[in-house]
Amino acid sequence: MKPLSGSPVFTVSVPPHAHCGRTFKQDALGTIIALLPAAAFAVWHYQMPAVRVLALSCFTAVLTETICLYFMKREIEADNYTALLYGLLFGFLIPPAAPWWLVVAGSFISIFMGRMIFGGQGTNPLCVPLVGWAVLTVSWPDLMDFDMTMLASELTYPLSQLKNFGPETLDEYPIKSLLLGFQLGGTGAVQTGAIVLGGIYMLARKIIRPDIPFAFIAGVAATAAIFYFIDPFEYASPEYHLLCGATLFGAFFLATDGPSSPTGHTPMLIYGFIGGVLLVIIRIYGMYPDGVPFAILLANLMTPLIDKIKPGPFGGITSIHVRSRS
């Protein structure tokens, strides 16, 4: 029987039917806006090299995403700002003096191996920019070393100073100058004050939930405080672990990456705390000066396990059912 024209037609679709209006595009755009102050600080400190690295990284990321989607015969949705966001995040992590091919290679590997190979948007098991960072650090450690590549800069890298000369060198870095970004490190990752501003903006806009960043910061502070309490002359104090290097950048922007972090409050808290603890342990015992990327990668790998902590379904099988059945 053919439906008469004008008669009501029922559309059948899968749930959920009600939406709150949040889209990937809005969230990614909000995160990019939150990153802009840090980018501005990076340009202030490093001038054109920072602009060059960030622009090249963003361009390569979007181009890679477009090409991959084209070859996957999928709708080209590289305009939803997520690839741009990952490119920007990757540019924040590498030294401003990195050669152009390093930026291009890292940005390409991030998007291709960290994201598109797993199926694109929302499928990455690891935080996308960290994949590229890790591959580059394993391959070309000398070019990713902030001290080696930035010899011309007057700034110094507090974490390698801490590793090589002990915590008394940290007295050269007053907290205010650390907040203003007077330290060597990833292009935008060490602009601590601007990163905090961006983080507060994201929390206020509810782009991220506060659980992961605060658990991450608590993990860093607690572990660093334990070590500081054991021997204040051997280990740095918690506030320096928080303000030096990419700690806060990791807490607000990398650890909160949607697909690679757990859902639910308790898992989020556990995940963030594990990341923070690992960060300080890697900084103190590891061979790399900054442990943020590796700590977050390891925490990402634990995500499926942590995600098992979840409330049972309403009316689902509980232990009472199992016991009565047997």
């Binding site: 939406h19 949040r22 889209t23």
Partner: peptide, 12 residues
């Protein structure tokens, strides 16, 4: 399939 409706998270 990778159509938008097979996911249903966003409200596009």
């Amino acid at each position: 399939g990778h159509e938008c409706r097979s996911c249903g998270i966003c409200s596009r």
